Simulated scan of single mutants.
Amino acid sequence: MHIEVHLFAGVAEAVGARTWSGDLPEEATVADLFARLAAEHPSAAALLRISFASVNHAYTTPDTVLVAGDEIAILPPVSGGEEALFEITDAPLSVENVLKKVRNPLCGAVNLFVGTVREMTEGKRTVELAYEAYTPMAVKTMQQIADEIEERWPGAHVAMSHRIGRLEIEEAAVVIAVATPHRAASYEAGRYAIERLKEIVPVWKKEVWSDGTQWMGHQQGPWNPLRPGSEG
């Protein structure tokens, strides 16, 4: 069967392309696909070992059987009617616009998180950051996080915006707003939102330093997007 695979961040860089297409045997699995890519592109093998695959916008296990026509993406570890509550955009972020999406007459508190580009990290001077995302799945997983929050903290309203493209020092990379009836829940749910975003939303950043570059992903331990959300 013939398949096409979307590649992102460091995997795309190692392979030298944003997509890979080829023929695999019927009943081939995600593990078979990874083995094929590692054999064809040894420089990507180490990163592939810690990457996950998504099939039709859902994270999958290595034994998942692939079918011709599936939308497949390989995702290296990560560090998107009415106006969209969840978005991936290349435009500068507006804190006020995200705040307006969650304000409502029943909320007594709004927690705002704004992640910005800092200049110094562990002694290295950052020149700029470059973000990219698997947009349809990023938006879908943002919605998943909001659903988890609303289940744990009833009455919560959530909005998230993440910037992609090149960002300068002090620019906002992500804005999250969580409105709740009471203040304690807004603190707890707001922290849950950003930590969960770093766990499962397929967004990557490339740090451009004065002496080199590196793709950065999830920074809070081994990456496993199939793990259920942590307790609030």
Rank of each mutant, 00 (worst) to 15 (best):
V55C: 11
E13R: 12
A173H: 09
I88S: 15
V174G: 06
T121G: 04
A184D: 15
P136E: 05
E128F: 00
T180V: 04
G232P: 15
I194A: 06
V208S: 10
E171D: 12
G22N: 09
G16H: 10
V102Q: 07
A39G: 12
P202K: 04
N224G: 06
V5W: 02
S186L: 03
K205N: 01
W153P: 05
G22T: 05
V65S: 08
D90H: 11
R103I: 11
A9L: 06
Y187W: 15
A172P: 11
E13M: 08
T135Q: 13
L226W: 09
E13W: 01
N97L: 13
T89C: 00
L106Y: 07
K101S: 01
E199D: 13
V67L: 13
S43C: 01
A46V: 11
H57R: 15
E122W: 06
F8L: 01
T19I: 02
V65K: 14
A28T: 08
Y131T: 04
A84H: 02
G108V: 02
L93T: 09
R118C: 04
R18L: 14
Q214R: 13
V67D: 06
S161T: 12
K198Q: 03
G232C: 09
E171C: 04
E40L: 15
Y134P: 07
N224S: 02
V201M: 09
M137N: 04
T121D: 05
P154K: 04
A193S: 11
E170F: 12
E195F: 03
F113I: 02
A45V: 09
A156N: 03
A133Q: 10
L85F: 02
P222K: 13
I145W: 00
E199M: 14
A109M: 05
P105T: 00
V139E: 15
D70T: 07
F86V: 02
T19F: 11
S51T: 08
A73P: 11
E188S: 15
E82L: 14
A58V: 10
E87I: 13
P76I: 06
E168I: 06
P181R: 06
L93V: 10
H218M: 10
A28N: 03
T141W: 11
D23M: 12
E171R: 10
A17V: 00
L37C: 07
I169S: 09
G80D: 08
G165M: 04
E199R: 15
W215D: 06
V15E: 04
S43R: 14
D23E: 15
H182A: 01
G155A: 01
R166F: 01
H162T: 06
G155M: 04
Y192E: 11
V11L: 15
I149W: 08
V201E: 06
A91V: 02
Y134E: 05
I3T: 03
K140M: 09
A31L: 13
D211V: 03
V208W: 00
V5F: 08
M120V: 14
H157K: 14
R36P: 00
P225W: 12
A73V: 08
A159I: 10
E40P: 07
E151A: 15
V11S: 03
V110R: 01
H41P: 06
V30C: 11
L93W: 02
I194P: 00
L24D: 04
